[in-house]
Design a protein around this nucleic acid. Structure first.
Lengths: 214, 214
DNA sequence: GAGATAACCGTATGGACATACGGTTATGGC
DNA sequence: GCCATAACCGTATGTCCATACGGTTATCTC
């Protein structure tokens, strides 16, 4: 047997290169040659791990979106462990989607760039759609738990509430990214984000939890 | 004097070509040659009216965003003329931003494509930011009018409410575009849109108008 | 009706890039 | 230690495209 390499690790390394380039200079700047350099390898090696540039970009997109989805899920889990209210842990999770710091801002830019290119490619579009569904389902679960617990009125339409919460979060992300300095009156970004997010959350989570733990 | 042409009309004609191509096949498909063909003219003529491709795209982006902004303003004006509630005319205006029919869907796709490319170009980003500010200001005016009229409680923060309404609208647009068939339970798109939009509007416009006209 | 000038056309050119490909190197098993 | 084979490299190739450019046509003015 010849020498071996960790294919998955290599691919992730390349995807990180894509992420860096795209977030700094946009998707058009992500040529194979530049991606190779950014990942510290040669053009030929990148070709070795991906059959085409399309496959490369698709993988990178999935990579980034998975990271976001995972982080959101993680925050929800943390919230449950901390035994806070469901509304509080959902708030923490949703904030993971907002471009509030360098890391998340970078991810947001990448997601935006790929969303734009999704007009061409059904495959890319599917990645975005899947991520969106996954997020909305996670929110819906939180709302459902809220019903059992007493934080949410039983007659609330779970799916609709989830759609509304996701909509306000995504829309807020758009605005935060366009105006990173914060609006006239409101000072730090974090406050502005809560000022938009919390009223919507409170309109769904109107009650308080009856029992100590689910 | 030699023969003359309507420069503005020509430029708009070209911008329409861009819009068609981008909405059907994405920004990458918008080569100068294809734009020329789609607008029914030669490559040379397109060059005659735009100094560079960047300038061409910038103009086209402005063109599309202006159209959206104008349509929104128009709906608000219509609502005032009809003497309905402010909430009702705002609802009509916001629906102009949603990808509910072919026309608006096409515009949404173009806006999305350009938003993605805005990572490269500060000029493109500025167009998006301006449009966003314009929309939020229009909403803020509506909320302000609502206060005078009695539809909105005086202690509501106008800017924040506007940001929230815009956020939910933009976020809803994202979801509608990704799932054009409508979600499991909800039948036509229009209903689904209202189901998300109206609760948010009602959380701002809680009262009824005291006087017959402003 | 003449000619000046803008409107308009088609092709040439040079650059950028994705991909193909032949070659080199290192390392697992024997 | 040797050899098979994957890991890895650099360059060649052909395509696509934005832009440059020289040429043609129509029309407004006088």
């Amino acid at each position: 047997m010849p020498r071996t390499a960790d294919h998955d690790a290599r691919r992730r390394q390349i995807a990180e290169g894509v992420r860096t380039i795209v977030s700094e200079a946009g998707l058009d700047a992500a040529t194979v040659a530049r991606v190779a350099r950014a990942s510290g390898m040669s053009v030929g090696l990148v070709q070795h791990y991906f059959p085409s540039k399309d496959a490369l970009l698709l993988f990178a997109y999935r990579h980034v979106m998975d990271r976001i989805g995972t982080r959101v899920a993680q925050r929800v889990a943390e919230g449950e462990a901390a035994r806070g209210t469901i509304a509080a842990s959902l708030r923490a999770a949703l904030r993971e989607m907002l471009p509030l710091d360098h890391e998340r801002r970078s991810e947001y830019r990448v997601a935006q760039a790929f969303a734009g290119r999704s007009l061409d490619s059904a495959e890319l579009a599917e990645v975005g759609a899947q991520t969106s569904r996954r997020l909305r389902d996670q929110i819906a679960v939180a709302v459902g738990n809220g019903k059992e617990c007493g934080e949410v009125e039983p007659e609330v339409d779970t799916g609709l509430a989830a759609a509304r919460v996701l909509a306000v979060t995504e829309g807020l992300a758009v605005q935060l990214h366009r105006e990173p300095h914060g609006r006239a009156g409101t000072h730090p970004l974090a406050e502005a984000a809560d000022a938009v997010l919390l009223p919507t959350l409170e309109s769904v989570f109107t009650g308080t939890c009856r029992q100590y733990s689910r």
